[in-house]
Design a protein around this nucleic acid. Sequence first.
DNA 1: TATTGTTATACTCTATAACTATA
DNA 2: TATAGTTATAGAGTATAACAATA
Lengths: 147, 147
Amino acid sequence: MATTRTDPLTLEVVELIGTVVARYYEEYDEAAAAHSLTGAQARVLGLLSLEPMPMRKIAQKLKCEPSNVTGIVDRLETRGLVERRPDPADRRVKLAAPTEKGAQTAQQLRDSLTFAREPLAELSDGDRAMLRDLLRRMLGDSAPRHD
Amino acid sequence: MATTRTDPLTLEVVELIGTVVARYYEEYDEAAAAHSLTGAQARVLGLLSLEPMPMRKIAQKLKCEPSNVTGIVDRLETRGLVERRPDPADRRVKLAAPTEKGAQTAQQLRDSLTFAREPLAELSDGDRAMLRDLLRRMLGDSAPRHD
DNA sequence: TATTGTTATACTCTATAACTATA
DNA sequence: TATAGTTATAGAGTATAACAATA
């Protein structure tokens, strides 16, 4: 088990990471609000824009109870951004999928999330590769999963 | 204005940052839940443990409306973690401050947030310094403020 | 008049439990 | 019986508007 460090350098890095996290969320919520979406609604729309999926799977991705997804998708559906389709293979399942308007909104949302991208442009290729390697090592096994 | 990049390396770094952000929030909420606190309650308690402050200032720190802070501090006060004190200098102001029990809880919360610290222990001093410098440059002017 | 904190209201997100349709 | 989705309910966070006390 790794020893937890409390030296000034480590603490400063921890604080910097905290700042990155706060900034990331701020920008995400602002971008969502610009489309009159809540954070949860924007997250679901973003998920579905990658791939339509059953209600249950959305809940797994969001790490929340399936009953919550009903309401979130209801609101997206009311706004004409998402629709529920039957699953031919299993009549219990409803596949949530973005409408054309929803797909456009999702794309606009993605494009407006420049916080993480723009500052990276200030770094050289070498710096970006270094940052990538450091983050990978920080995250260990559990790097981005595509499940 | 910086050009936004879309090369594979940049996109991978962006995704890694997104993973760090998600992990950070997960661990924060889990740590809070271990003390039967919501994320917002844990955040306010953490703030007050650094320095007692007026309700209004808490709202500024949380970037939310002052009316919301009333409820959050109410719940912390009900649990005996926070108390409201009069401000001798301005009788309109109420200073929220952690009780002894609240201060202990805040310390336990801080200690249990090892996500950001523990993986850093895997990196050498040089790597940590490099990560610090890269993050500083990413954040530009707006690094951690202590206002 | 302006500011601080609160209250009232409405909406969203959240978990829990019970229900239905289907497997 | 088990699973997918929903409904009902209650608690918490959020913004808006209106209010009392104080500056």
